[in-house]
Design a protein around this nucleic acid. Structure first.
Lengths: 337, 337
DNA sequence: TATCGTTAGTAAAGCGCTTTACATAGCCAA
DNA sequence: TTGGCTATGTAAAGCGCTTTACTAACGATA
């Protein structure tokens, strides 16, 4: 590989001149510029980014730490982040952690070691304080999708409460009164908020939130299946289920089918996320759509603002919307009560 | 951030000693080691990877260039690559190109500039020679999933022909004779091979491959829908369709439904890939499973072997398998012929 | 003609690390 | 006593770039 020195020698100027010329820090006469350009072309010179980064301390790159890149939600988020970052001339380094605390810590460490300019952090765990400790006081971090307690960096979330409220209200308007909620990990921000939205919708309708019908566990298909089993095996199962993620909804779907019941005839189901497969399952899933692309874009914009010394909003809430498909119908067993 | 020099000063030794100690290039007495360890702990020293990389010319990192990280197939591939690379102490830099030639070239360039040790390349386009030119002669590249003409680096593919053969044979064994194939881009290796496997199965059964029933276009849902429309609108539509990707199959599914027909009663359908959603659609998709995790792992292993000066196999073919679900049945209209 | 301001550059240090070549002290054997 | 070995290090250059401070030459001005 040709170096800056090679170019300088070829062009008959000093390396300083070439460097400053390439960085627009000097005005050179046309003749000199031509010589340098010619030398660069002839030698096929490409600057060594490592050297530049070491020298300047800037990398024009950001990191995205994500629990699982194979999860469509995070994959789409990553795609959006990448798109927006590239548009601004930044590279993105993506790491997935499998949702393990130590992997998250390692990822953050490694990112810091690789000297990226900033970090967009997504997690799906409740932090025990170690992440907060690592991230505290940093001026180049944005939290996306999920909160980490005790970290005061800019955050980009969706309106979780509103989403659950919309979902529950839709079920109520369809005539349901016996509605269960299956949520993600206990104490996770999004779960708290969705539970709150659900509760508000129920209270507004004068309906009770039965403790046994609020099941919190994981944003996974397996947990959805387990929770659905619990609900369906009870003496008086609910007529509708609000699942706090489409993954959970898929698990519910499977168990409902295994019980010989039908969605939406016997049980109505609302999901959350509107992942790509939500429209493809049987029946197509009514769900709460998150604006994934907007989330990724905004996180990048806020991070870059941060890097430029500006002060983006401490917290942004993006709107969600109800997407009605085929998994909700009026309750059939109402008379049985 | 504390530097190596700070540590050396704190420990009362030379930077050289610290560097060599940390890299296991020197045997120091216990007392000295303890002093260095104490200094590192006290200063919370973390080596500057940029500096190390600049100095050694090695990065302990590889790049993965992929068409679209939001596509579940590539997302799972990426997850597998990451898992395997991390297990070997390597970082992975993922870029998605949107399947555009210039984006691919930029990505490869940028990756080279970032001085990764090696590159795993996946594409879903037919190269016009520009990629081949960039990659030619490189000793640190592995091609994964899809071929690039004229590039002689190690390659990791699946047995595409066998996959299509299995799918077609399954349909034939179920009694189908009128079978169409919907494939990806014309001239793409995987498409050629799947077409060949399909043809072999048909010929072995003494069945004709009707030119009008071989539609090549794109590995997308939209193309699947378009191709299915063409097939169904013809005077004598096929009784079965072999789709060369699950995405295509989804498009077919949708159009079949729109035509008021049922899968598998009116039309049987076999997909390819076994993406996560294949089991979730209605009806659950019979498809050819690609061993995505193994593909990712093997690509990393071969790349690392390459970096260590070994010579991995020029081409590896991983086996695929037929996963039977609900989208195939015996043809109902046989008598009508 | 001495001074000043431009123009068109350059020399050298530094980013934080690695590595090659060399140095010193102590000890042992001949 | 001397020569050589081992153990325990160190000095300095270099990776490729940026940046700060400086300078030489030239024309214009007082």
């Amino acid at each position: 590989m040709a170096t800056l020195n090679d170019v300088a020698a070829e062009a008959g100027v000093s390396p300083t001149a070439v460097s400053r010329y390439l960085n627009n820090r000097i005005d050179l006469p046309q003749a000199t510029r031509d010589r340098i350009d010619a030398a660069i072309a002839k030698l096929d010179y490409r600057p060594n980014l490592l050297a530049r980064r070491l020298s300047t301390g800037k990398s024009e790159a950001i990191a995205l730490v994500t629990p699982d890149i194979a999860n469509p939600f995070f994959a789409e988020l990553a795609a959006a982040v990448e798109r927006q970052a590239h548009a601004s001339g930044y590279s993105v380094y993506i790491t997935s952690t499998g949702g393990h605390a130590d992997a998250e810590i390692n990822a953050i460490r490694r990112m810091a070691d690789s000297h990226v300019d900033g970090l967009i952090m997504t997690t799906n765990r409740v932090d025990d304080g170690s992440l907060a400790g690592l991230l505290a006081g940093r001026e180049n971090v944005v939290l996306l999708d999920e909160d980490i307690d005790g970290v005061s960096v800019p955050r980009v979330f969706v309106d979780n409460a509103e989403g659950a409220y919309l979902g529950a209200k839709h079920l109520i308007e369809m005539g349901h009164e016996d509605i269960a909620l299956i949520g993600g990990p206990h104490r996770l921000m999004s779960v708290n908020e969705r539970l709150a939205g659900f509760t508000r919708a129920m209270e507004e309708a004068g309906l009770p939130v039965r403790p046994g019908w609020v099941l919190l566990g994981d944003y996974t298909r397996d947990y959805g299946a387990a929770a659905a089993s619990v609900l369906l095996d009870a003496v008086d199962p609910p007529t509708a289920i609000l699942a706090c993620s489409d993954y959970i909804a898929i698990g519910v779907l499977q168990v409902v089918r295994e019980h010989g019941l039908s969605i939406p005839n016997d049980i109505s189901l609302v999901g959350f996320d509107d992942m790509a497969f939500a429209a493809l399952v049987d029946p197509a899933l009514t769900t709460i759509r998150q604006p994934v692309a907007a989330m990724g874009e905004l996180a990048v914009k806020h991070l870059l603002a941060l890097l430029e010394g500006q002060t983006p909003p401490a917290e942004t809430r993006l709107p969600v919307e109800l997407v009605t498909r085929q998994s909700v119908a009026a309750p059939s067993r109402k008379a049985q009560k």
